[in-house]
Design a protein around this nucleic acid. Sequence first.
RNA 1: GCCCGGGUGGCGGAAUGGCAGACGCGCAGGACUCAAAAUCCUGUCCUGGCAACAGGGUGUGGGUUCAACUCCCACCCCGGGCACCA
Length: 840
Amino acid sequence: MKKAYHPQKIERKWQKEWERRGIFRTKDNSKKPKKYILVEFPYPSGAGLHLGHCRPYVALDILAIKKRMEGFNVLFPMGWDAFGLPTENYAIKTGIPPEKVTKRNTRIFKQQMKRIGLSFDWSREITTSDPSYYKWTQWIFLQLFKHGMAYKKRIPINWCPSCKIGLANEEVVNGRCERCGTKVVRKEKEQWMLRITKYAERLISDLDKVDFPERVKTLERDWIGKSEGHEVEFQLFGLEQSITVFTSRLDTIFGASFLVLSPEHPAFPTILQTGKIKNRKAVEAYIERAKNKLERERLEKTAEKTGVEIEGIKAVNPANNELMPVFVADYVLAHYGTGAIMGVPAHDERDFDFARQFNLPLKEVISNPSEKSHFGFYLSDGRYSKPYTGEGILIHSGRFDGLESPKARGRIFEFLKQKGKARKAVHYKLRDWVFSRQRYWGEPIPLIYCPKCGWVPVPEKDLPVKLPKIKNYKPTSTGESPLAKVKEWVETKCPKCGGPARRETDVMPNWAGSNWYYLRYCDPKNNKELASFKKLRYWMPVDWYNGGMEHTTLHLLYSRFIFKFLWDIGVVPKSIGPEPYKKRTSHGMVLGEGGIKMSKSKGNVINPNDVIDEFGADTLRVYEMFMGPFEQAIAWDTKGVRGVHRFLQKVWAICTQELSFVDASKKYATLRALEVLLHKTIKKVSDDIEQMKFNTAVSALMEFCNEWSRLQNNQAALAHTGQKKRGVLSKRDIGKFLKILLPFAPHMAEELWHLLGYRSSIFKSKWPRYNQLIIKEEKVNVVVQVNGKKRAILEMPRGSSQKEVEKAALQNPKVRKWVSKGNIKKKIFVADKILNIVIR
RNA sequence: GCCCGGGUGGCGGAAUGGCAGACGCGCAGGACUCAAAAUCCUGUCCUGGCAACAGGGUGUGGGUUCAACUCCCACCCCGGGCACCA
C-alpha cells in the first residue's frame, strides 16, 4: 500500500492533466464575484527564469488558488514584457532577429513556469512585442498625441556613448548608464515627451484611494515632490524686466539679500542686451561653461558653489524695497520652479554656502524658538557656522515682526498681492517623461513628418506600424535609430496631403507596453479595440497587484498615469474609477547563498530547474514561501530546501499511512485533540495567506503534521479505543488538510486527494472553513505571575473566571510559596491568558 | 543631509502589551547499518546546580505599565530611496 514519494512522476502527470482538463481557464461571463490577481510579467531574458521570479509567482498563485476555492471567478494571467535592450544587444552581436530570440526565450520561460505548477490562464498570454499587441500601444500613443499629451522638444538628454541611446533620468544611476555602466554625457536631441506632469497632482492625491504599502506611497509622493509656495516678482532696478522667483518660505523674504538666476534662465538674452551690464563677457562665459557641464557634475559638490555677479544691475526686494545684487549660478536649476530664486543666506543652507563664498551680507529674520539667543550661526571668531532653516518667529521684518512663520507667510502674501507682486504657486519635482529611444527593438512611434503639414498621425486603420525586418541592428553613429537606414520604410506619403513624407524612426521606451497590459488581459484577442467595455467593466480594477519595489517610481507611476489618461478620454469605463490597481504588494529579492546578490559574474546563480530536478516543484514552492517574510530580501539556503523536502516526505508518509486506515475501516472519527488543531491550522493558514505571511502559514502546516505524526505513532493514544490500530484523522479531515496544503504543494495535494478516493480535481473543491466552536472548546494555559514573574502555568477550561483561576493558583504550591513572601496588594486578571498577583 | 525600513540564539526567523526564541536549518548524543548516506528518536538562549530550581537575557541609555521584543523619549549601528527641487 505504501508508495514512496516521487515528485517528478506525480508533478509531470498532474501538470499534463490540469492542462488537458483546462482547470485554470478563466471564463468572462460568470455570476461569481470576480478577483483580478496580477503579478508583474517578466522580461524574457536569455538567462531563463530565476529563483527571484518564482517567489512572487508562487505567492500570488497561492492567493489565486485560494480565491478560486472560495468561490471567486479569478483572473490570473501571465505574459511577456518583451521589448528591451538585452535582446537588441544580443541581436547586434549575433545578427539573430530579436523576435526570434524573444520567441525562444518566452518558450523557455513558459515551460519553466509550467514546471512550477503555476495556475496561470495561458489562453490569455500576451507578448508586448507582438504586432497584434503593440498595435494598441501605438494607438494609445496616437491618443496622447491628439490630446496634446505628447510633444517633441529639443532637450539636453542623458546620452550613453556606448549604447548610443538617450536615457530617461530614471535610467541613469549615479551618473552612469543603468544597463552598461558607461558614464553618461549631455547631448541635445529632439525627443518625444509625455506630459506626465499634468497628472502630478492627481498621481499624488489619488494615492488616498488605493491600498498600497505606506512606503510605496511615500516613495511616489517624494518622487513627484509637490511643493506649495509663492511666486514673487522682483523688479530689476531701472529696467522693464522683472524676475519671478518661487519660494516656499515667503516668511523669510525680508532676509533676502541677493537674487540668483540659473544659467539657462530665459531672461538672459534680453538682460544681456540692455547694455547696462558691466561684465557681460564673464557672465556669458559662465553660462557657456554651465551648459556643457553634465547636470550630474553640477550637483556633485554641494558646499562649494560657483557663480558670477551680473554687475550693473540690481533687483528690488518687493517687501522692503531694498536693492540687492543679482547673480547667475548653476546651483539654481532651470527646470524647477521659475529657474530663479531669492537668496536668504540666514535661513537656507545653499544660500548660506553661496553667501559665504561671495562674502554676501546675512540677515536673520526668523528666530529659532528653541534657542535663547539669536545669531546662532556666528562662530566665536565672527564667522558663520550654519543657518537656521526651521520655522520660528519673525524679526527684522518690519510690521510682520512677532508673527509665526505660517501666519507670516499669509500676511506677507496679502501685502505683496495687493502690490501685484505675488501669487500662490505649486511646483513639482516630477518632470515630463522622455518617451523616444533611438533604437530598433521597440514600438515604432506611429507618426509621419510632412514638410507641409508637420507631424501627422498614422491613420488608425493603418496600425500597427510594424517594425521592418533589418540586418544591422546597430544605431547610427549620429545616434539615430537603425530604422533611419531603412529607406523604403522611412519614405512614405503624408496621410493628410499625400505629398512625400518621412516616418518617425524613434521607438518607444521599454515601459510603453507595460503601461496598459493589465487592460489587455481582460480581452486579449480583441482586434477592434484595446479591450471591450463589457469585459473591462467586469474585470477592472486589478484587485491585487504584486511587483518589485524597484518599479515604484517607474512602471507603477507610469502605468497609473496612462490609465488616468485613458480614463479621462473615455477609452476605459468610468465605473472602474481613476486608479487601475486597488491593492499593491511587493516581494523581497532572493539573494544568493550567504546574502550576496545572485549574478552570473559571481557564479552563484541557482537555476530553478535544478532545484525541481532534485527535489520537485512542490519543494521549491514551499521553500520559497517558508524561507522568510515575503516582503523581505532573503538568502537562498540549500540546506533549508532539504528541510522543506523532508517535511513534504513526512507529509507523504503520514498521509499514505493514514489512507491505509481509511481503507480498512471506513468510519472513524478524528481524535479530538487533532481535530482542534486542524481547525486552528485552517484558521491560521487562511488568515496568513491573506496577509502574505506565508512563512508562518507553512510553519503552521508543519506543526500540524508533527502532531499528527506524533499521535499516529502514539500507541497509548490508540490503545484506549480498544482497537489495536486505527487512524487518527477521518477521511473528511484528511481532505481538509490537503486543501490547505494545496496552494503550497499542489501536485502532492492533488495526488493524495485522488488516492483518498476523489475523482474530480481538488482545485474544484471548496476552501475549508474552520469551526469557531471546536477551536474554542479546548483548554487554555493560564500563566500565573507573582510580581510580573512567571511562577506557574495552569491548564484551565477556556473562559474560566478570575475566581476559579485564583482558587487554582493558590492551590499551586509554587504560587503559594511566592505569594507567602508578602501581602497581596493587587490582582490583575486577563481571561484565558494571565493572572498577575502583586505582593509587597 | 532628508525620508522610509530594520536590529531577537551559531543561522533564517516566530511572538505587536500578557509563557521570548514557534517552525526550520545547523550542531551534539542515540537507534538502524559491516560502514556511509538517507531515515527515525532525544537534546540544544546564557550563568550556577546532579537535579528540582534560581538568576540573567530581544542594539544602547532612560521612561510609561501589575506586565515591554512590542508603547514613548534620546542615542548607536545596518539596509534601501532621494539628494543644491528653493
